Amino acid sequence: MIRDVTINDAQQIVNIYNYYVLNSIVTLDLVPFSIQDFEEKINAISSQFPFIVFEEKNQILGYAYANTFRTKPAYKNTVELTVYIDHENLGKQIGKKLYTELIMQLKKQKYHVLIGGLTLPNDASVKLHENFGFEKVAHFKEVGYKFNAWYDVGFWQLTL
């Protein structure tokens, strides 16, 4: 089931996210988040943008949301997307289902451009974005440093 996030989801969401903080370059965050951090994030984002979860048997297996791309008013019709899937549930098309719903909601809300920022390499996320019609529009070399190595960041764009 895909549904809107609630504050009660914070614990499960932070567990999903912190796995990637500690074990992956998918996020360039270096320090795990607290439940309170994610409660604040949920409140801030969901009050302005779609923030959805994929739930099965009362367990959140993934989440996705839109957020501010840049703070200047001229960017108000552009959003940056985020999607994370529980690492034990990868390969089950959960990201595709979440993105399908998220993009549908954003179209209804009349957003114009969707941006996906990806730490590279990340073949699964590149494939997800390109399957939805996103095109690579930027590539920044060695801008993130994690696990004693430099990583590139790419940006994919979809115009609705």
Rank of each mutant, 00 (worst) to 15 (best):
R3G: 06
T6E: 06
I7L: 15
D9Y: 03
I13E: 12
I13N: 11
Y19N: 11
Y20W: 08
V21G: 00
L28K: 12
V31Y: 05
V31L: 14
P32S: 01
P32H: 04
F33P: 00
I35G: 04
F38D: 02
F38C: 10
E39P: 03
E40S: 09
K41C: 06
K41S: 01
N43W: 10
F49V: 07
I52S: 05
I52Q: 06
I52R: 04
E56Q: 14
E56W: 14
N58L: 14
N58P: 13
Q59P: 06
L61W: 13
Y63H: 03
A64L: 13
A66Q: 09
F69I: 10
R70N: 13
K72V: 00
K72I: 00
K76Q: 12
T78S: 11
V79P: 07
E80N: 11
E80P: 06
I85A: 04
H87I: 00
E88R: 14
L90A: 09
L90G: 04
G91V: 00
K92Y: 08
K92W: 06
K96W: 03
Q105K: 15
K108G: 14
Q109F: 07
K110Q: 15
Y111D: 05
Y111C: 08
Y111K: 07
H112A: 00
V126P: 05
E130A: 15
N131Q: 08
N131Y: 02
F132M: 05
G133H: 09
G133I: 15
F134S: 03
V137G: 01
V137E: 00
H139T: 02
K141E: 13
G144H: 08
F147T: 05
N148F: 01
Y151R: 00
Y151K: 00
Y151H: 03
D152F: 15
D152L: 13
G154Q: 04
W156D: 02
W156Q: 08
